[in-house]
Design a protein around this nucleic acid. Structure first.
Lengths: 340, 340
DNA sequence: ATTTAAATTGCAATCGATTGCAGTTATAAG
DNA sequence: CTTATAACTGCAATCGATTGCAATTTAAAT
């Protein structure tokens, strides 16, 4: 709240006895201004300690050079990697990045979307919350032609660019790997099926099973929110089954961890008695005992790609490209939990 | 870039045949507007699908309701926890959070600071990069009375609020705990001593030792960059000592992990043969076998505190409170690696 | 019914940069 | 030394909300 008033383009104009419009053009590198004048203006701006009032410019141009990011939870390795990638590209293109977390809460997600909309972000990048089933709050953006890119948890019904990992083949590879290592009665702890990623992982799982002629036992399929405690409940239920699994494909590393810890307490050995594969390659998965085999998702690269697409879209001002769905490759990382 | 023009307060005013100023006041809940008029205006705003043009308001009021955050690296558990805490408080107070990472690069840090300044963020929260030794880029903010809060890596010479953790007592408690569990020949794997936090942890260690009348053997003090491989080298060296340690206080969890894994390979049992305590409470420390006793740094709470202080400062508009240095308590988390 | 104070509402300037269009100056061609 | 063209520069409106102050209406008191 400095009392000393900021210098404006008018101050520069007055000092040099020229018009503010010329100053504005010079400072924006408009080639229509002569080199002499430009240099003069730049020097004077420097001397007077001029700082552009971006708010005034934003207001006038209706652009904010800001990207909004909505995601479930910042404090999570995959998501913070994505943010890191977004920020990297945004920064290189002169965009600011505003981040808000929905905590997987639908109301909050809606409010964030509205705030971003009111704040006139130039575009948004979204990964939806677990509870999100309606997309009205996001439709606003696509209707108003505000560029929108989804990543990871996408809404198929909204026309927009989408960056996803190949969840299907991740699920397929994970399951195939379990089968290769002797898994026959394979269970799956999956996420909520309103999210496409979990549908796809499940599909991959099922296809790998049937490819090998293995039956998919419905009682071995559990879907929940994939938290630590959800995982614990799931593994408990699986082990109470008359048909106990000899392998489990978990839709994230957290539930894989829950399973490992629960089984350890019960004296059941991983991988000797039960094989386990997780998903996401959380940092802890490498150092747990046994270390967790998992599917790597290239978070940073996804963020870069999402920001890249979004900024291209923003710059193309309405001449929207056909919407793309970019599928990033996943990679199976084989560790101890799945190899006998 | 919707072509259909947005409705403004003038549209509402025209519709109701009243002045735009009244509309503005009503929409801002200014009590000077009669309840009847307010209700009418609110209804009409709703009907016309009015959305405030925040850019216009920002421009006029010179406030952006935005907090800038500068930190070394987003994709790191401690920092993303802090961001999460900042975002939490900011959101509750109606502030947006803009984040940029310096990657520990001084030039980038400077450019980010300038961008934030030009973008007129209402305040900034900073953790400085490793290379940062000059503070001119930040001094700008304190001179212009833009509220500024440091966390973690602070610049002592700049007058501002600072949020740090109590590294000294963390080191002290960790060491004391090792002693209580029978440690006598206690080693320390520490970080570079040019960073205050590692000095403090070392001090805590030393004081706890001398308090119990235990000698500090210089050959049992190792300082490095605390990476996985640094940790492995350190534990190797310690175990080659004629005087082998029976307990180790590691300045982070990563080196504690290195030690545990190395010792496991050598058939030396933790905690039976050697006690270990780490620092930071990285997510993996809980799930390793044996789980690592450690010092919790309340990242989320630090973020909350920082945002809280910053927003208070912003709201107090220049009547700055005396600058505080808030030392967040650390907490010893006792797990398997340190208890026989 | 008249006066006075209080409660509302409106007027108009303002924030600082951008930009279409008009006006002016420099440059080149004849 | 004109004249035509290109190269610059300036004028003035504009974006939408906010706010001090003046004007008007309403309510209360006499």
């Amino acid at each position: 709240m400095g009392k000393q008033t900021e210098t404006t383009i008018y101050d520069i104009a007055r000092q040099l006895n020229i018009a503010a419009s010329t100053v504005s053009r010079a400072l924006n590198n408009n080639p229509i201004v002569s080199k002499t004048t430009r240099k003069l203006i730049e020097r004077t701006a420097q001397e007077l300690g001029y700082r552009p009032n971006i708010m005034a410019a934003n207001f006038r141009t209706k652009r904010t050079k800001t990207i909004g990011v909505i995601l479930p939870l910042i404090n999570r390795h995959f998501f913070s990697s994505v943010i890191s990638g977004i920020e990297d590209i945004a920064y290189k293109n002169g965009f600011a990045v505003t981040i808000s977390q929905s905590n997987d809460n639908f109301e909050k997600e809606t409010k964030i979307a509205q705030t971003f909309y009111s704040n006139r972000v130039d575009g948004i990048i979204v990964s939806m919350g677990m509870q999100t089933k309606s997309y009205e709050h996001l439709r606003l953006f696509s209707e108003k032609k505000v560029p929108l890119v989804f990543f990871d948890r996408v809404a198929d019904s909204i026309p927009a660019h989408k960056i996803v990992v190949d969840d299907y083949s991740g699920g397929y590879r994970a399951t195939e790997h379990l089968i290769e290592n002797g898994g026959k009665k394979i269970a799956h702890i999956g996420g909520p099926l309103n999210l496409k990623i979990y549908q796809d992982r499940l599909e991959g799982f099922k296809d790998a099973m049937s490819k090998s002629g293995l039956p998919v036992d419905e009682s071995m399929l559990i879907h929940n929110s994939l938290t630590r405690s959800d995982g614990t409940n799931a593994i408990k239920r699986l082990m109470q089954n008359p048909q106990k699994p000899d392998a489990i494909f978990c839709a994230n590393d957290t539930t894989a961890l829950s399973a490992i810890i629960y089984l350890r307490e019960k004296g059941i050995k991983v991988p000797q008695d039960i094989l386990i594969v997780g998903f996401s390659n959380e940092p802890f998965s490498e150092v747990v005992t046994p270390s967790i085999s998992t599917i790597r998702q290239p978070g940073f690269e996804m963020g870069q790609k999402a920001a890249d697409l979004l900024i291209t879209e923003i710059k193309s001002k309405g001449n929207t490209l056909p919407f793309q769905k970019i599928v990033m490759p996943t990679e199976l990382i084989i560790r101890e939990s799945s190899v006998r």
